[in-house]
């Protein structure tokens, strides 16, 4: 494929995806309130659960929007690999990684995020309603209490233990929070590897490129194997090693031609 053709595909992709994302957001804002009302009246769902469900659907719609340009391969993503409660830890390579959570087989999950996504005012009300946690604004005690309550209710927590996107595609240093919470509450860690989202839209680039994205769940890892005061450190290192090996293996797959040509 020539460089011109590849550039044309990228231009069409960005026009398509960005315009449909704007439309999806507008439709979402219009559709959320009546949907939430119907679900409240008929299913008696609490507001948070309803919003988390609708956000999951929003992610699925986004996956459908990007489908012509982004092929998502899911491995070990059956519901048995996501026992509840559980803390799902995900590697982070692109700002779009959160959208890929629409591919999870579970919807009732609370994200823990840094402060900056809460400054995206168009998302903030939904994040608050969904019970997402701002780890930079919460004390450790509050976070621990919240996660225990979520685990007690049999739900999932989603965390990005690197804290920020990887700039070079490698797995970055893990913070201990997720693992300390897992050890303290007896909840398993569920490692989820995403490979390829950095080629879709890496940090520092202004446009998206077609890509193939692979998601692989490594299955639950229970904290009872890691005892002692520093058990969470051992658990963090073990989970990180497992994810690093899996990502290395997933990366061996050949890249899509468009990305190679555009560099």
């Amino acid at each position: 494929m020539s460089k011109v053709a590849a550039g044309l595909i990228v231009a069409v992709m960005n026009l398509w995806v960005i315009s449909l994302m704007v439309l999806e957001f507008i439709a979402g804002v219009l559709v959320f309130p009546p949907c939430a009302l119907v679900m409240k009246l008929y299913d008696h769902w609490p507001a948070g659960k309803t919003v988390r469900f609708l956000i999951w659907i929003y992610g699925k719609v986004w996956l459908a929007i990007v489908f012509p340009f982004v092929r998502v391969h899911r491995e070990n993503m059956s519901i048995e690999n996501f026992p509840n409660p559980g803390i799902i830890v995900v590697n982070h390579r692109s700002v779009l990684d959160a959208y890929f959570m629409g591919a999870l087989p579970i919807y009732d999950a609370n994200f823990t995020v840094r402060a900056w996504p809460f400054r995206l005012w168009w998302y903030t009300p939904f994040m608050h309603l969904a019970g997402y946690m701002n780890v930079e604004a919460m004390s450790w005690e509050d976070l621990d209490r919240n996660v225990r309550a979520i685990a007690g209710a049999g739900r999932h927590v989603i965390m990005f233990p690197e804290g920020h996107r990887s700039r070079d595609g490698s797995l970055g240093r893990f913070h201990s929070g997720a693992f300390k919470l897992a050890c303290a509450s007896g909840v398993p860690i569920i490692p989820l590897c995403i490979e390829g989202s950095d080629r879709l839209w890496p940090p520092g680039r202004l446009w998206m490129s077609p890509a193939r994205v692979r998601m692989r769940c490594l299955g639950p890892i229970y904290p009872d194997r890691f005892d002692g005061e520093l058990g969470h450190v051992s658990m963090r290192k073990h989970v990180q090693d497992c994810m690093r090996c899996a990502l290395e293996e997933m990366r061996q797959e050949p890249e899509i031609v468009w990305n190679q040509q555009l560099g």
Binding site: W140, R173, H175, S176, G177, K180, E229, L230, H232, V233
Partner: peptide
């Protein structure tokens, strides 16, 4: 070095040992 409060607590325990 980018350490957070939990890292500092872990570091203290590690160095104690």
């Amino acid at each position: 070095l980018g350490m957070d409060s939990l890292d500092l607590m872990d570091m203290v325990l590690l160095l104690q040992n």
